[in-house]
Computed example of a mutant assay.
Amino acid sequence: MSETIRIASAELAVEVSTLGAEMQSLKTADGRNWLWNGDAAWWTGRSPILFPIVGKAPGDMLAVNGKTYPMAQHGIARRREFVIVEQTATACRHELVSSAETREVYPFDFRLTLEHSLQLRTLTVTATVENTGLGPLPFGIGFHPAFLWPLPGAEGKPHAVILDNGAEPGVIQLEGGLIGKTLPTSPFKAGRLALSHDLFANDALIFPEGAGTGLKFAAEGGPSLHFSFGNLPNIALWQKPGAPFLCVEPWHGMAAHAGGTAELVERPYTVALAAGDEMRFGFTVEIRDEG
């Protein structure tokens, strides 16, 4: 059975489930929940961790050295029970360790640790991947948190995503959930993307590079969420068209190429971690009531 634990600062409270080490709520002290609630009418996810792949594999089959394994979209970690290894008032740490069951679909030894910590109105989420095997560990990893759109208290206001670097990064079109062509123009103008539901009519907007290490999701004249990303070069934005949420997804890894190979090591931005090494990935989000 899954267990949900709660951590809190003076300004924020977070609930995290052992199933997928997935955040269930993100509430300010006034009781407003900024995280999507997982309503099955739209999407049951809230903030899944994506490992050992991000996105889809061709035919939901992953190849390792020519041998194929069944692998659903976004990998195996979000569907497995993690163990709580540490909890304080303001932080918690969950762990998933490879097993005979995981090796049947992902033939590697690993330890995946997910930590949530709070300081005032800032949440930090950090994933650590450790290679506990004898050879290289190939993987992709990503975060998939969904936040309310419109933001709490900002109903009827225009919303936008604004890149810290002011760039106009290239965007990729998905083809059946796989990486397709780069579109000729960026939806960002001078670092700003005015949000509308029709942007997501053809699935997620994926920016493989150039979106930088920080952005804000903001309501005009209203509240905003300020993000920073560490060791996560790819960014995606997604919603079910018309749904009342927006996913802000920093990744290190992407779906396989449409028409390309199913080999894990040939997926874009795959990490190859040496035996005995570990690597950290993470993001922070600060909630602000204005701008």
Rank of each mutant, 00 (worst) to 15 (best):
H252I: 03
V161Y: 11
F51S: 01
A29F: 00
E11A: 14
F217M: 05
V97Y: 03
F281I: 09
E155M: 06
A274N: 02
F245A: 06
T213N: 13
L35R: 05
G20W: 06
R103G: 06
N165I: 07
G75L: 06
Q119T: 11
A40T: 14
A236V: 03
P187K: 11
D30P: 01
P169I: 10
I179H: 11
T68P: 02
D198T: 14
V64S: 07
G260D: 10
E168H: 03
P208Q: 10
G166I: 08
L137V: 07
L96S: 09
D60Q: 15
G276Q: 03
N234K: 00
L12M: 13
P233G: 08
T90W: 02
H226A: 02
F283K: 00
N33P: 08
R79I: 00
A154F: 08
A194E: 14
F217A: 03
E249C: 11
K27N: 09
P70D: 04
A275R: 04
P136Y: 01
E15F: 01
R80M: 15
G210M: 10
A154V: 04
G38D: 08
F51K: 03
L163E: 09
W36M: 10
L134D: 14
L199S: 12
G214C: 06
L195A: 09
T122V: 07
P70W: 05
F229V: 03
Q239R: 13
F229H: 02
L199M: 12
H159P: 02
T270C: 15
T4A: 12
L225E: 09
R32V: 02
E290S: 07
P150S: 10
P150Q: 11
G142P: 13
H74P: 08
R267V: 03
S196G: 12
A72G: 13
G166F: 09
A13Y: 00
G140N: 15
Y69E: 07
A256Q: 14
G242P: 06
Q239F: 04
R192L: 05
S2T: 14
L273T: 01
E15N: 12
G260I: 09
G259M: 12
D203M: 08
V271K: 05
T18I: 09
Q87H: 08
A258K: 15
P208V: 11
R267P: 11
E209F: 11
P241E: 10
M23A: 15
V129L: 08
P145L: 07
K181M: 12
T185K: 15
V85C: 10
L193W: 12
L225A: 10
A91T: 04
A154R: 02
F108Y: 15
H159C: 07
L151H: 00
L120Y: 03
R111Q: 13
L137A: 08
N131A: 00
V105T: 14
A72K: 15
A63W: 08
L183H: 12
T126D: 07
R192S: 04
G153N: 06
L19P: 01
E290D: 05
R78G: 06
V125I: 11
W43D: 15
A194Y: 02
A10K: 06
A160D: 05
H116W: 11
